[in-house]
Amino acid sequence: MRVTQEALRSIRRNLGGPLIIVAMALLGLTTFFAIFAPLIAPYDPARTFEGAYSLPPFFLEGWDSRFLLGTDDVGRDLFSRLIHGARISLLAGFAVTVLSLTIGVVLGALAGWKGGFIEAAILRLMDTMMALPSILLAIVVVTILGPSLVNAVIAAAVTAVPGVVRLVRATIREEKAKPYSLSAKLYGAGGFRIVTVELLPNSLAPIFVQGTMGFGEGILNVAALGFLGLGARPPMAEWGTMLADSRAYVESQPWLVTAPGLCILIVILSFNLLGDHLRDVFDPKLKTREEA
């Protein structure tokens, strides 16, 4: 009984303010939309309705009850496209995060554990990547691979790698200097075992925070590439691509531009709020300072 009470109190304490709950609710809702997109969306996102071009959303004069948020210039239902866009953006963000964390953790752990030449080589490579504006690097990668959603994800992941590598390297180095690392070594554990079984589990908190922030940034970069015409190809219902598609109608039908942008903003904002909060929870040093 006492244990549950303690657990409840700890959950309440770690849940943070109402803003965090709103952020988590929004992310939950987006995830729900993403998973059940075909069931929730009234129509196929690529289906065009003849004669129903450029209809306004429900709060404007002349809307059609079949299309809650109106239609775009070729008669596609905006609501359905936004819902399917949630699916694409979340998947893309997830893929960017997993890809960049995997590569980043391997390289960062290698650099932090081995030190010496390997560390220097990895760090110089990361410096090289960081000396270029990230979107430029992504543009070059996408032009090499060809514009598509998958390649935009790869490009966004590549640009996210240096940040992860630096973080993981720093935490592994810190953990490596602690006594438990030495004692594992004295027990005869090999380097691979010490890093994966001892050091990495103790470095998870900052990696987790970085992953949450990286999720939002991944979505943003994939959407930015889509906006530049280097990501998902139309008629795919990707939010950034939808923005680029409706750029020409920004004056006559501003909602076509407003809606996908708002979706991007809300999702990224939620991830950043959550990331900020997780950092406060996981970084006790910062927390005591805040409370002091």
Binding site: L19, G216, L220, A223, A224, F227, L228, G240, L243, R247, V250, E251, P254, V257, T258, P260, G261, I264, L265, I268, L269, F271, N272, L273, D276
Partner: peptide, 25 residues
């Protein structure tokens, strides 16, 4: 700080378009 985190999350390619619509058009 709420404003700051919103700005931090802003997709500026969209923000720029909106700014043009509002302030220029």
């Amino acid at each position: 700080m709420g404003l700051a985190v919103s700005f931090y999350s802003m997709p500026i390619f969209w923000w720029g378009l909106m700014a043009i619509v509002i302030f220029s058009v």
